Each structure stands twice: as C-alpha cells, then as structure tokens.
Simulated assay, not measured.
Amino acid sequence: MFARLPGLQEIHYEPWREWFDLLQRLTDKSLRLLFESLSSDRLRRLVLFENFDQTYPASMTWGCVPVRIPSSDVSRVVANASLTLEHLSASFIVDASLFFDARELSWKWPNLTWLALTSQLLVPQQRPTELDDMLRAAAAAAMEMPNLETMEIWNGKKGLAMLFRYQRAERGPAVITLRGTWELTLRPLVIQAWDSVALRHRGQGLVIVKELLDANACVKSHGDAIRHLKLSRPVIRPVSLRQIQMEHMIRERVQS
C-alpha cells in the first residue's frame, strides 16, 4: 500500500499487540514486510505505537507472554527505514537495543532530527551492563546523525516510568535528562560516549540533569508514564492517549 503512495510524508500507525504468541510471530512477519515497503524518499515522519494492557495476559487461557518481546527483524527494518527520515518514534513495537544492534557501520542519518524509542532495559537494577551497552550503542549511532536535535529512550508501564533524553545545544553544553520513578545513574563509559556526541554536534560539553518523579505521581499505565515523562514530541495521538488513561480509570472504578 505504501509503495502506491509515493508522495506520502507522514505516517502514524498504532496497532495493538497480539494476545496469542503464535499469532504475534505471524503479525511480526507482516509488520516486517509492511515496514520494508517504506521506500519513498519523501516520507519524513514515522510514528509507531504498539498498544497493550498489562492485565490482559493473565486472563488468556492460551500462550501469551506477560511482556511482549519485540522482534529483531521488525526492529532492523524500522532502523533501516529511519535512514531517510526526519522524525522517528517507535514505541514498544521495537526495542532500542535491537534498533541500535541492527546498525551497519556504513549507516548515516543525514536528515534525522528527533528519535524516540522504548527500551525494556530501562527498569530498576535489572541488567546494568546491557543498559550501558545499549546507551553506548545509541551514542555511536548519534555520531552519525549530524542534524540530531533530540534523542529520547524511555520505558513506561504500571508503577514504572523512565526517560533518557539527549538534547543538542546551539550554544553551551548539551543536556542529558534522566527523569523517572527511580534514580538512574550513568556510568563513566556511557557519559564519555555521549560527551563525544556533544562535541561532534559542536556542543560545549555535557550536563546531566536528574529529575525524580514526585512520590505522588501515580503511574497506573504506560499512558500515565507518557504524561509524567513529558516527552518532547507526541509519541502517540492525543485521542489514543486519552483512551488508554480512560480505560484504566474505568477499570479502577469498577474494581473499587
């Protein structure tokens, strides 16, 4: 379909995850073919958001993993499609670690100014070495994004929200913001990698800003996480975000 729309410049696609693991694998094959068809050089903005509900898997009587495992093939084709884009946001349908692992040494993103990805590694005290590797891989990719203004890597679900944001500065130091429900500490090699990115982008060093979400911030869903993290651009259409929040609000009222 996309191949028949050569003048298309912007796509917003918001599917739900599948609730049967075998069906999810089949859907991922279809998604791979879909994103491979994004061959138009005119496409500038791509916003992907795979919705889910954490309460659903427990009610399924057949095979359904509690947490969706993104496909490396889908992540790879989205990464490849991003090479000509100006804006890319891919939430839950790919994982940042798989996206950056797919990078080939020859890849460059000459037009990309904003990149937002989710990562399941952004959880408290789980896999610090893998998180470091992912953030360093993100920095290596950012070195090949000469016009990058903002990169955001985030995660959100019930009880959890975290954002890593790199912002380029025209004057003064670039800024890394760490905002979330726990304190995330960047280790020296990660800081060094992003300091190199700031220098490549003609910045004057790097400043790290930590913002711990207020204890009263209630994160009941990934929708609440998006609201509290204050991402720089919409990663989901406003009406879809309201629907997610309304669904959880109604469920709470029914259960209370």
Rank of each mutant, 00 (worst) to 15 (best):
residue 140 A to N: 12
residue 130 E to F: 09
residue 124 P to A: 04
residue 158 K to T: 14
residue 139 A to K: 09
residue 127 R to A: 09
residue 139 A to I: 04
residue 136 R to T: 05
residue 153 I to Y: 01
residue 128 P to E: 04
residue 168 R to T: 01
residue 148 L to R: 03
residue 148 L to V: 06
residue 135 L to W: 05
residue 141 A to G: 07
residue 138 A to P: 08
residue 179 R to S: 11
residue 176 I to P: 04
residue 164 F to H: 06
residue 157 K to N: 13
residue 174 A to D: 15
residue 157 K to C: 11
residue 139 A to H: 02
residue 164 F to I: 13
residue 140 A to P: 04
residue 125 Q to I: 03
residue 136 R to V: 12
residue 136 R to C: 07
residue 179 R to L: 08
residue 125 Q to K: 15
residue 127 R to H: 13
residue 165 R to S: 15
residue 128 P to A: 08
residue 163 L to H: 04
residue 125 Q to R: 14
residue 134 M to A: 03
residue 128 P to N: 10
residue 131 L to Y: 06
residue 172 G to D: 07
residue 127 R to F: 14
residue 138 A to E: 02
residue 173 P to V: 09
residue 147 N to K: 15
residue 151 M to P: 03
residue 146 P to N: 06
residue 161 A to N: 09
residue 155 N to K: 07
residue 167 Q to E: 14
residue 127 R to W: 10
residue 156 G to D: 13
residue 179 R to Q: 12
residue 143 M to H: 13
residue 135 L to S: 11
residue 156 G to P: 13
residue 161 A to Y: 05
residue 141 A to W: 05
residue 151 M to W: 02
residue 172 G to W: 05
residue 165 R to P: 02
residue 135 L to V: 09
residue 125 Q to F: 10
residue 131 L to E: 04
residue 176 I to A: 00
residue 141 A to N: 07
residue 175 V to R: 13
residue 170 E to K: 05
residue 157 K to H: 08
residue 163 L to Q: 02
residue 158 K to L: 11
residue 151 M to T: 01
residue 139 A to Y: 00
residue 133 D to G: 01
residue 153 I to E: 04
residue 139 A to C: 07
residue 135 L to F: 09
residue 165 R to K: 12
residue 158 K to Q: 15
residue 147 N to D: 11
residue 159 G to T: 04
residue 134 M to K: 08
residue 129 T to L: 12
residue 165 R to H: 08
residue 141 A to C: 15
residue 172 G to A: 00
residue 173 P to R: 01
